[in-house]
């Protein structure tokens, strides 16, 4: 027997592994590899999805950089990303810490379920509900403000360019259910911290804030890193909520790149130009992924 088996033999011995992989790759090849490849190629074309399809080099990208609507969409998405990152790393984490600190098992279980209920309501329904809450005269938010005697603070929340972006960001407040997965994963991370660490810390008379600072946060570092990354990637894809709530308006105040791409493609038939928007977004996500891999994920 040779020390190293030949490649052909190793492939033959593992033939069932390949058979198990065939179905998933069948789907990926048709609907993912091919389409992604097309998206990249067409970003160099003037393509209307029908009869026009000519190679124009980097023209789409050059035009994109002087496109003020696209510029505005990049500014908006940056604001949204920063807010979402801040939210994903605080609200669900805080809620997980609170639930974890609760000594009564039944009470903590109750809140665990309560907090993730919004997660199972269809996201579109959540957006439509908030659209109704934000409505000017009949909306719950303004009605509440009037009840509280704060008439002056009422706004047409989604209809004014000064408040629309913030209103979209605030949807889902207090952000536990909308980030239900994060909440549960943080909670799982806390449950993983071994009992001995906790007990010895308690014996040493550690104060609650010290516990958070010196034990919980360091132990949750992997989860925090993962959700930092996911928050960035997910924010880059923001689309449906804006489409449903404001359609990018008023004016351009809430336009985001994905929505801009969608409109270029399906309203103006500028498929090539839209593909270029997609490629730029992909490169940004790739950039953050690489940074994350090289500089943040040092251990493991």
């Amino acid at each position: 027997m040779g020390r190293k088996k030949s490649l052909g033999r190793r492939i033959w011995e593992n033939r069932s592994a390949y058979l198990f992989l065939i179905p998933v790759f069948l789907f990926l090849f048709v609907f993912k590899y091919y389409t992604f490849f097309t998206a990249v190629v067409e970003s160099f074309f003037n393509w209307n999805g029908a009869n026009v399809n000519e190679f124009i080099g980097f023209d789409n990208f050059i035009q994109l950089f002087s496109d003020s609507a696209f510029g505005q969409s990049m500014i908006n998405i940056t604001i949204m990303t920063l807010c979402n990152v801040g939210i994903a790393l605080t609200f669900p984490l805080g809620a997980a810490m609170l639930v974890f600190s609760c000594k009564n098992q039944r009470i903590s279980n109750f809140f665990k379920v309560l907090y993730i209920v919004p997660m199972v309501v269809p996201s579109l329904v959540v957006y439509l509900m908030w659209k109704w809450i934000y409505a000017y005269d009949t909306g719950a938010l303004n009605q509440f403000l009037r009840l509280a005697g704060l008439e002056g603070l009422t706004h047409s929340w989604l209809g004014e360019s000064g408040t629309a972006l913030a209103a979209i960001i605030m949807i889902g407040f207090p952000f536990i259910g909308a980030f239900g997965l994060q909440f549960l994963v943080y909670l799982g991370g806390l449950l993983d911290i071994s009992v001995e660490i906790m007990e010895s810390a308690t014996l040493d008379g550690i104060r609650p804030m010290q516990k958070v600072r010196y034990i919980w946060l360091p132990m949750l570092k992997p989860q925090l890193k993962m959700f930092l990354m996911l928050a960035i990637i997910d924010s880059m894809q923001i689309f449906e909520n804006v489409l449903v709530l404001t359609d990018g308006g008023p004016g351009r105040s809430t336009i985001v790149p994905a929505l801009y791409m969608y409109k270029q493609a399906f309203t103006y038939n500028r498929m090539g130009y839209a593909s270029a928007v997609g490629v730029v977004l992909f490169l940004i996500v790739l950039f953050f992924t690489v940074i994350n891999y090289r500089y943040v994920n040092v251990e493991e």
Binding site: F25, F36, T38, Q237, Y262, G278
Partner: peptide
């Protein structure tokens, strides 16, 4: 193979929307 699958985690879904539509 594994990378060939999970790479789609970092490709925003809407990037492939248009070609998918045409396909």
């Amino acid at each position: 193979c594994y990378f060939g699958i999970i790479m789609f985690l970092m490709i925003p879904g809407f990037v492939t929307l248009i070609p998918q539509f045409m396909l």
